[in-house]
Amino acid sequence: MLNYAVKRILIGLATVLAASIVVFAMLEIVPGDPARLMLGMNATEDAVHALQEQMGLNQPLLARYFHWLGGLLTGDLGRSYTYSVPVVDLIVERVAVSLPLALISLVLSTAIALPVALYSASRRGTVADTASMGVAQIGVAIPNFWFALLLVYVFAVTLRLLPAGGFPGWNAGIWQALKALILPSIALALPQAAILARVARSALLDVLGEDYIRTARAKGLSRPGVLYRHALRNALIPILTIVGLQFAFLLAGTIIIENVFYLPGLGRLVFQAITQRDLIVVEGVVMLLVATVILINLVVDLSYAIVDPRLRNRP
């Protein structure tokens, strides 16, 4: 087991390193010069050169890469070209929006999906099962940004109950800040809930088909009793896997929703940084997200291996 864990961790680290090369190389070929962008249309050539010098853009490629990599190892992601503050500070500010948003959406989607899945699985083939899976089928097909637009139209434009966008900051008070996150998290959560409900239902049905469940049933346990006592616990691993993946998706994939609601989250930070050619910020955020996904996968793999020793021999 230890061998397996060490190997997985090493592979994870190698993947992160490979990702850092990909990210750096990709951004290296992005056309456009941050210095010229900042100085605009009336800037003289020597002013642009002076700013490039200040930003350290004139150093050779490899030197910049290793400088950046060295910084990564010590937790220093460099300084933003445009904001000229440490990238870490920028990320921390934005995570304060993205993380709560992702967590609320995740809790919301799980809270909706699991009861639906349990209900459907326990009444497989009934009208209720068909109907709820039909709704889930539609939910999967709804683009979250369109759903967000509809929510804005109903709750912000027509009823004026909730803000149509923007984020007042946590300083404005917990309720004010949460209010700004309600519509975005619903828009993110419902399509995710539809996916999760479908996956959880089939995971539950799979477990219900296993021998030991039949044994439990034969021993006289009621069907819902089996469902809650045995099936749910055993179906939890595939469900948690999906939840873990959805969390990674939510953290990075909120970019469109952040665009709809103009939330200053990680996604918008990257989007903005790319248009401003603040590449060092882009590199930092993308590396953070990539490392998060790799970490989540690693944890999932390792927990699988703990539960099911047979998997340790598979690569």
Binding site: L39, G40, D46, A47, A50
Partner: peptide
């Protein structure tokens, strides 16, 4: 100046 980064140096 020479190392000015003024956007409207003109």
């Amino acid at each position: 100046g020479g190392d000015s980064t003024n956007a409207q140096k003109g």
